[in-house]
């Protein structure tokens, strides 16, 4: 299996504060990799470094086969990103949003049109096409944001708490979309606070105080920590935290 994310000894310091303490992990092609941790554990810092929004203090990183220090432009073409905050433009219509994001990734007009039709059909948005995104329900917005984040068919997509504030049904549908994308060979790197979502991942890492404390499949983690659900595993680990958020 091809390795799409390769992180060796990643350290990120803000002054004396060590946000990421010597992280080492790998993510394979088509894998759904869950990135868990309590608030302030250093997840967002790590995901920002992987996306190129922030530079590491030290460490070796390869994303989609490219070096993070020297081949940043190539990385950018091969990754998608969906942030905690809603990332579409409220004052543009669905089609305009798709066109804009397609445009900045250099997609051809023909391709953008194809995608637009596909997305609108997939989300049953026919009656919303002329409306501003602001008028859409949150769940649909989030699904649309996810589709837009993979519009350029990236090798890997980073989702930073994509389902926060969404109802359980929509979350379920959202995860169906994630599986669909993963089946096409896209690697999914996802952070979440929902433990049931953690179970959907192929492998998960749990961060505590800037370190990765556990990294395995959900089944193995449950076995190791001798509990029957992920929530229990998470709490056992997160209790060790000495940092106060």
């Amino acid at each position: 299996m091809e390795t799409v994310v390769e992180v060796k000894n990643l350290v990120k310091k803000f002054g004396n504060f060590v946000a990421n303490d010597n992280l080492t992990f790998e993510v394979k092609k088509g894998e759904i990799f869950g990135f868990l941790g309590a608030n302030g554990a250093g997840k967002t810092t790590a995901i920002k470094i992987l996306c190129g929004l922030s530079t590491p203090t030290s460490g070796e990183l390869n994303i989609a086969g490219f070096n993070i220090y020297t081949e940043r432009e190539k990385i950018k073409k091969n990754i998608g990103y969906m942030s905690q905050k809603f990332s579409l433009y409220d004052d543009l219509t669905i089609a305009e949003n798709i066109k804009f994001y397609g445009g900045i990734y250099g997609l051809s007009l023909k391709k953008i049109k194809e995608k637009t039709i596909k997305y609108i059909e997939a989300l049953n948005l026919e009656q919303y096409t002329k409306k501003m995104v602001a008028e859409l329900p949150l769940g649909i917005k989030q699904k649309l944001a996810f589709m837009v984040s993979v519009i350029h068919e990236p090798k890997i997509v980073f989702l930073d708490e994509p389902t926060s504030g969404v109802d359980p049904i929509t979350r379920r549908q959202f995860w169906d979309m994630i599986y669909n994308e993963a089946n096409k060979g896209t690697t999914i790197f996802v952070t979440t606070h929902y433990m049931d979502e953690a179970e959907y991942c192929n492998r998960i890492s749990i961060m505590v105080d800037g370190k990765i404390e556990a990294l395995d499949t959900p089944a193995n983690l449950k076995k190791t920590f001798n509990s029957n659900n992920m929530e229990n595993v998470f709490i056992q680990l997160a209790r060790k935290a000495t940092r106060i958020d």
Binding site: G52, L53, D90, Y101, I104, S149
Partner: peptide, 9 residues
């Protein structure tokens, strides 16, 4: 709104 991050990525 967070769109700047998306643009920078």
């Amino acid at each position: 709104l967070g769109t700047m991050e998306i643009l920078l990525v």
